[in-house]
Write a protein that binds this DNA or RNA. Structure first.
Lengths: 295, 295
DNA sequence: CGCGGAGTTGAAGCGTTTCAAACGGGGTGG
DNA sequence: CCACCCCGTTTGAAACGCTTCAACTCCGCG
């Protein structure tokens, strides 16, 4: 297997997989499990692999496998490797000084992990696999080489970074919402939107994370998450069976997710005057990236 | 003035300032106010301008001026311009469907604004100046040209993007904290850390934003922010006079900011075992980017 | 079979929200 | 120059919602 890897990156010293230092030491969760094509990588990043010679499969990108509950990245680690989720899902968290796990987001197919590596500092967050998972591993020094061979990678990465940033603001909106049911409703809609992005159902979700993780991300007690699930189910928006969730009434759920803190009345309307009032457009999905937004 | 601009970017059609479309139409808040040097731009982005010919001041980057309460970017706009804060400060927010302004973060010197432009979609957030402000304006199509002349810009931008991402996780930690005083304590520490980054005091802060904006970002009522300020002041951590805040007891404030939701006991310690327990290191500042973090 | 973890549900306490009123500063107009 | 108003900020009191502690069920696993 390591020969495959070595042939893909001849400039690299033999058998130096771009694994995260601390994760390799602490847990045997991450394994170099093969290689993938740069075409697939670009497609994962949302850039159609135009101009890439499809008959050039010789060069490959290392793929790593992470088992369930395995740690891909460790807070404080300094290795400069970037990961792109190929399959499965992760939770991204920060461990507080008192030991509390603050979940920041959940990552799915196509998402970038370990972006802080580019910044040069230490890793800001820990990344744990929620199930069996595979990721593309891109060591920053190898990135230079890749970029020279496939300039598209550069753009794809920038776009990926920018998209991660956009998602960060989405998660922020979930966490600061007032009522716990609103938080949960937004979370479900957010998950559903991400599902459809990767070609999955969009109304029938199988949660990969526990109530406790959801609660941590939403900033509420896990009992409250349970209760909120019950409330949303009683209202007819969802059908909930442990980690299986069906969205029964999408519009209703969206309406529930819209409710925010008591509006400042006309103060806000001064700035945002006759904007999308009464418009069904939500802040993501359904009218996701293609919303023409009347300017 | 426009000749200066035209000479800086001869490839550009004359008099096509890279202003955000909607902001230029809606408010006369943004004005092309001159040009700056790429050296300063790189320095702002945290990349020392090594290798840049300092005796090459002919080429310049357009600088825009935004008046207080002026809108730099409008949610939903599609123009692909990237901004770097040169002076002053902004609030970044999303306007909810019901008119409520959800503040996502505050941006200071050196920060990137409008990064979603790279992603190609519509703007995700509105950006409003909290005071008189100047920004560097980088139209994406001009970026290509800039990159060819100064390759450092590329790296600087990537690092900036990655740093913005790191900051997003910091803000997330503030917003999901449990008690309102903890949220506010973290906010103050976060602000102070950013102040020191730009060479300002670090213990003597002049808030540029109102209580309402702080409350929105922290996800609490603005009355609660006021009360929390009172509580932190009564505890001796701060001296608060309207928008002037002095940090009197930094360690105490840090301790107050550490308090999170009741820890899951030993569940969390299983994963993060003997990590920085008892270590004074906080999640930013004081031991900011240089913390060696025992691996 | 019994243990432990995940999820649900109940009841009590408390923190936050909400409504309300008052204070203070900065602006405008008389 | 003062009065006045507007708005940001502060403080009070009541109601609500969430957290917390607790008990209980269900399920997988040793």
């Amino acid at each position: 297997m390591s020969n495959v890897y070595a042939s893909a990156f001849p400039s690299q010293k033999p058998a130096t997989p771009p694994t995260d230092a601390s994760s390799a030491q602490r847990s045997a969760a991450t394994l170099l499990s093969g290689v993938g094509s740069p075409q697939e990588l670009l497609q994962l990043l949302g850039v159609p692999a135009w101009g890439l010679d499809p008959a050039w499969p010789a060069h490959a990108v290392p793929v790593m496998r992470v088992q369930a509950d395995g740690t891909l990245l460790h807070e404080g680690s300094r290795s400069g490797t970037l990961y792109v989720v190929r399959s499965g899902s992760f939770k991204v968290l920060r461990v507080q000084e008192d030991g509390y796990e603050q979940v920041l987001t959940f990552a799915q197919q196509g998402e970038l992990l370990g972006c802080e590596a580019l910044y040069g500092g230490a890793r800001q967050s820990t990344v744990v696999a929620l199930e069996v998972t595979t990721v593309y591993a891109l060591a920053t020094d190898e990135l230079r080489g890749l970029q020279q061979r496939w300039p598209q990678i550069e753009d794809a990465l920038c776009q990926g970074l920018s998209r991660q940033l956009a998602r960060a603001s989405e998660t922020a909106e979930m966490m600061v919402a007032v009522a716990s049911e609103v938080r949960l409703a937004r979370f479900i809609l957010w998950l559903a939107a991400r599902m459809t992005e990767t070609g999955q159902s969009g109304t029938r979700l199988r949660l990969r994370m526990g109530r406790r993780d959801i609660a941590s991300m939403l900033g509420v007690a896990h009992e409250t998450v349970s209760r909120s699930f019950g409330t949303l189910a009683d209202a007819g928006y969802l059908r909930v069976d442990n980690r299986d969730v069906d969205i029964l009434d999408l519009r209703g759920l969206q309406a529930r997710a819209r409710n925010t803190r008591a509006s400042v009345g006309e103060h806000a309307s001064r700035l945002a005057a006759p904007r999308n009032y009464g418009e069904p457009a939500t802040s993501g999905w359904w009218t996701s990236a293609a919303a023409p937004q009347p300017s």
